[in-house]
Amino acid sequence: MKNKKLKLFTIPYAAWMLFFVIIPIFIIGYYGVTDSNGNFTLANIFSITQYEHYKSLFLAIYLAIICTVICLLIAYPLALILRKLDPKLSGTLIFIFLLPMWMNMLLRTLAWQILLERKGVINALLTMAHLPTLNIINTNAAVVLGMVYDFLPFMVMPVFNSLSKIDDSVIDAASDLGAKYHTVLFRIIIPLSIPGIVSGITMVFIPALTTFVISNILGGGRILLIGGLIEQEFMHASNWNLGSGLSIFLILFVFVFIAISMFFDDEEELA
């Protein structure tokens, strides 16, 4: 009886899933394996072997890796500090930290464009201070900066979560047994936070890999990532078949990545 009532509540979510997740995937699946006449083909998927295509894939992987590494290097020490604070204070800090996420990602990225432009806010300030100007707009660096800014919270949250689950007495026990701080860090704290690190990496790497908004806005059309390429096929070239084929490839690539990271996560739990 109670179950029936509960089931009623799931209908909106099920409908949402159906219309906005499952059906689009089927549409992409259909277009991806057909040509413009509707005949079956794998050419769209294998078009990733074309130079322009795999170049944008490799560039996306390259920038996503850099972004993930930078996020990890910023987030881990930050989470270590937050862990040590009084929970009330760390809660407030995390709230402040997450605040920008409530703003649309497009707007946040546009804000960076205004800041970084050749005659933008940052350069205006630098000129006023008689310092050399910063010319990174429309470069890989600007794109990575935007990615780090947008995705950093996705690294901080899971890492902080797993760090705060570590019992203080375990850390005390390690130093009681003679471990210096770096030993405690590398033998106890980092190994125990691997689940958080792995989910942080997944949550940053995947959106960074597939983004087109950030590269379009901060790359000024010069930097074409795989996400941007797919967007172009759909929106500008109106080649839904090719766009879908590349999407299928990207989805498979992401699946493989998730499978690998889950393997690392499991291994940690088994050990």
Partner: peptide
């Protein structure tokens, strides 16, 4: 000196 903690504090990994 060494301590035996109330909650054991073994290294779970």
């Amino acid at each position: 000196l060494n301590t035996v903690f109330q909650k054991y504090a073994l290294f779970p990994h």
